[in-house]
Design a protein around this nucleic acid. Structure first.
Length: 215
DNA sequence: GGCCAGGTCAAAG
DNA sequence: CTTTGACATGGC
């Protein structure tokens, strides 16, 4: 995989245009991990409602959350959509981490990055984007997150159109210095750009900060 | 009312 | 191996 130096230029342009995004919008590693599962194909506003329910229930605690009745968990996270599915996915993930680390689940982040990533991916319902989000934003590990906006933004500029998730991820890893703070900011900026200017059906490319980027 | 949202997995073709 | 369908709420 050859580096693509324009990616760093894109990051700089977006940072200049939007400023720091202060991601992830969550306070504790557990809350971030939960949010990463709940936001799968779902508007963040809905996720916030679900997380508020968990907070009010006192369930944003690893042991409490893992011990909740599955039906009650599903009801609490209902606003996030796919609630039965996501309740099972959260339970899978919490159980898997507990099997390896007990309640000290954050030990997973002390593993070598590739090993930690494989461990998270072993939970059914945790795919590559969710795993990378947890590693980067909950674990402060340098794993670049690719999402639908990443594909769309790059695709509209003619880049990476023949690449799948891991191909695109490898391109970013090969093109950027290995810095957690950079990966954190860049992904957040790509989401910001996608929401504001690179929508599926209504691009506002006239004033887009990335206009003209990559030719 | 239709379209969309910070995906993932299993079943078809 | 590639494509398709299921999963669901809430905002615009």
């Amino acid at each position: 995989m050859r580096p693509e130096p324009r990616l760093l230029e894109l990051h700089d342009r977006l940072l200049a245009a939007f400023g720091p995004q202060h991601w992830w919008p969550g306070e504790t590693p557990l809350e971030i991990m939960v949010g990463a599962v709940l936001t799968q194909n779902t508007n963040w506003g809905n996720v916030e409602r679900a997380i508020a329910n968990l907070k009010a229930r006192g369930a944003l605690d690893f042991a409490v959350l893992r011990g909740l009745d599955l039906a009650e968990l599903a009801e609490l996270i209902r606003p996030a959509g796919y609630y039965n599915l996501k309740a099972a996915r959260l339970r899978n993930l919490l159980d898997l981490l507990h099997q390896h680390h007990g309640d000290a689940w954050r030990e997973v982040f002390a593993l070598p990055l590739a090993a930690a990533r494989e461990r998270l991916l072993a939970a059914k319902g945790v795919g590559p984007e969710t795993a990378d989000s947890i590693l980067l934003y909950a674990g402060d590990q340098p794993s670049f997150v690719v999402d639908a906006y990443t594909f769309r933004v790059l695709g509209r500029h003619g880049l990476g159109q023949d690449l799948d998730y891991h191909g695109l991820r490898d391109l970013f890893l090969a093109s950027l210095p290995t810095e957690t703070a950079l990966y954190n900011e860049f992904h957040a900026l790509l989401v910001r750009l996608g929401k504001e200017y690179c929508k599926k059906s209504r691009p506002r490319c006239e004033t887009c900060p990335a206009r003209g980027w990559a030719g």
